[in-house]
Simulated assay, not measured.
Amino acid sequence: MTETPGFSTRAIHAGQEPDPRTGAVNVPIYASSTFAQDGVGGLREGFEYARTGNPTRRALETAIAALEGGTHGRAFSSGMAATDAALRSMLRPGDHLVIPNDAYGGTFRLIDKVLTHWGITYSVAPVDDPHAIAEAITPETKVVWIESPTNPLLNVADIAAVAEVAHNAGAKLVVDNTFATPYYQQPLALGADVVLHSTTKYLGGHSDVVGGALVTDDPELDAAFGFLQNGAGGVPSPFDVFLTLRGLKTLSVRMDRHTANAAAIVELLQGHESISEVRWPGYAGMVSIRLSGGREAALDMCKKLELFTLAESLGGVESLVELPAAMTHASTAGSLLEVPDDLVRLSVGIEDVEDLLEDLRRSLR
């Protein structure tokens, strides 16, 4: 094909050509820890050891990079492994980074509890205010790290404006694109230097695999990510990669359904007497609400829901509910990133929407 294929076509075909020997239309699970060499240093297709590279993993890395419009992709054993590799590749003792004032709790924990012990400092700023981000930058800032939408308050950044702010200061911009997915947003095209995913979430899509990914157009950054991917060893298994590839193929149709269901739920919840605030960026399946009755009302809602399973994580085909302040974001307690204790986060699945609406109505009675 001479023209760039459409999104769904890339999700199904990029890096996933039929096996030339058997004709298998799905990429095989190459469950081999090592690869025969044609003489010393004579690598077949560049493979020598599974931590360094694996054909199944290469297919996933190619596919995710194609969906993000990037040239280089790296797959990791989790979103946090990808986060760790990115930060350790881009920062050195004495460096500074800017993060959202409502970042994911795991990202905050890594930065606040681990990287600061290595002499790295950070400031926080709202992602929807490029001026505030500019004010948070110091002469030592090397990275501006944002989520858009953020987790769990669902604030949205003007990525192009933030990229300009970061680049004017000589810093790199990393965008966690987990919530929006490349179906709705491709940050590299807006000026970002690196895109991060927890592939555990929407890209895998079925709550059966854990993984992460980094995508960039910068060959030097990609080489640094690859060095840590191999040197630190945070790589996914071939089976985990296979599951993620399986999920990737249906990303577009799932995201359409997540969005349609979320829109109906937002319509139900807005103006409901039990709800003081509804937050939704207008796409994808993440909806955050605050309860008029405070924390006890939030706990009661979580307890009464039936189709919405009380569980951490998000982005799967099934609907989930959680109380971030006591679950995914407990690490932010007492910090500038502390989450309101009356905030309930919904990951809206792809079930029949009327069933989900009735479950919510019942929980709010």
Rank of each mutant, 00 (worst) to 15 (best):
L154Y: 03
N155W: 01
N155A: 10
N155K: 08
V156M: 12
V156I: 15
A157S: 10
I159W: 00
I159L: 03
A160E: 01
A160R: 02
V162L: 04
A163P: 01
E164N: 11
E164V: 05
V165W: 01
A166G: 00
A166Q: 00
A166T: 03
H167V: 09
H167Q: 14
A169N: 05
A171I: 01
K172D: 00
L173Y: 04
V174W: 02
V174N: 00
V174Q: 07
D176T: 00
T178H: 02
F179P: 00
A180Q: 07
A180L: 02
T181I: 04
T181D: 08
P182F: 02
P187H: 07
L188E: 03
A189E: 14
L190S: 07
G191N: 06
G191Q: 07
A192D: 11
A192N: 12
V194L: 15
V194S: 05
V195M: 10
V195Q: 05
H197Q: 12
H197F: 15
S198Y: 10
T199D: 10
T199G: 12
K201H: 15
K201A: 15
L203F: 11
L203V: 15
L203M: 13
H206A: 14
D208I: 06
V209Y: 09
G211R: 03
A213R: 01
A213D: 04
L214I: 02
V215C: 11
D218G: 01
P219Q: 08
E220N: 12
L221P: 01
A223K: 12
A223G: 05
A224W: 09
A224H: 09
F225P: 04
F225L: 06
F225H: 06
F225I: 04
F225D: 01
F227Q: 13
N230P: 01
A232Q: 11
A232C: 09
A232R: 12
G233N: 12
G234P: 10
G234N: 14
G234D: 15
G234A: 14
V235S: 10
V235C: 11
V235E: 11
P236A: 12
P236T: 14
S237Y: 06
P238A: 13
P238N: 12
